[in-house]
């Protein structure tokens, strides 16, 4: 496969970036998208050119470290799939691909396609937890949790914190990310004591980090690799209004 790539190159957070044109001549349908970039980087290195920086770690779609825009879509064209699990057979020989980093004020570019997502950590630090010091827990079966509730909590808890929701949102809102954590913990009986404080603090913090507002558009839901539903945002809204 031959592909034409337009990749965002940016040396550092303060420097201007631009799209640079590359030809990927040795792509193969069985490669993952990141492996295609690995091969490109090997070629660039041998030519003495700076390889393209991009984040990835587990490469099995669970750690949430990878992610960028492919032709204007976060994580590319396959639904429910991170770029590390996206394979080149999804593309055609001769395709032209535009590859850009997540863009949001809260996610400043570090280099090329790698962005700083520590704002997400700070939203969690603001209240995305249940305060239970090690050693203080009662027996696991003391509080029974109906299976459907546990399943619903698990749906929300599946978030991998990749940032695709923010990247796809026209408002660069972190509502899906924040809502997912609020829904996960708010659904469980263990999460009740801190429920009000949690939603107040986390929402306030997401604004502090300069994420935008949610306008119920649904782009986040469409690109979420874990297919988390807009419902979690409604839940966050409800909890927030109630807690205010």
């Amino acid at each position: 496969m031959r592909l034409t790539l337009h990749i965002w190159r940016q040396k550092g957070p303060k420097e201007p970036g631009r799209m640079v044109h590359y030809e990927a001549r040795n792509a193969n349908p069985d490669m993952s998208f990141l492996e295609m970039l690995d091969v490109l980087n090997e070629e660039l290195t041998l030519k003495g050119e700076d390889p393209v920086a991009f984040d990835s770690d587990c490469r099995e779609g669970i750690c949430g470290m990878c992610g960028f825009m492919i032709n204007g879509v976060a994580h590319g064209p396959r639904r429910g799939t991170t770029v590390c699990q996206l394979h080149m057979r999804k593309f055609k020989d001769g395709d032209v691909l535009y590859i850009e980093p997540w863009r949001a004020r809260a996610f400043p570019v570090i280099k090329d396609l790698a962005v700083n997502r520590t704002a997400f950590d700070r939203i969690i630090a603001a209240g995305g937890y249940i305060s239970v010091p090690a050693g203080s827990a009662p027996d696991g079966n003391t509080i029974l949790i109906p299976k459907p509730v546990a399943e619903q909590a698990m749906d929300a808890a599946a978030c991998i914190g990749c940032g695709a929701c923010v990247a796809a949102c026209p408002n660069a809102s972190a509502a899906l990310f924040t809502g997912a954590k609020i829904a996960h913990l708010g659904l469980l009986p263990q999460g009740q004591p801190e429920r009000d404080q949690r939603v107040l603090k986390m929402v306030a913090h997401s604004t502090l980090e300069q994420f935008g507002s949610c306008t119920n558009i649904g782009e986040c839901e469409a690109v979420c690799p874990k297919e988390i539903k807009l419902e979690v945002i409604a839940r966050m809204n409800r909890d927030f209004i109630k807690a205010s």
Binding site: A104, G218, C220
Partner: peptide, 24 residues
Amino acid sequence: ALKRKARPQGYVKKEAIGSSYASR
């Protein structure tokens, strides 16, 4: 205004795949 502030630099290419024309 919040939206403008939240994404100072736009995308070179951006597709809408999950939203209605009306919502955007």
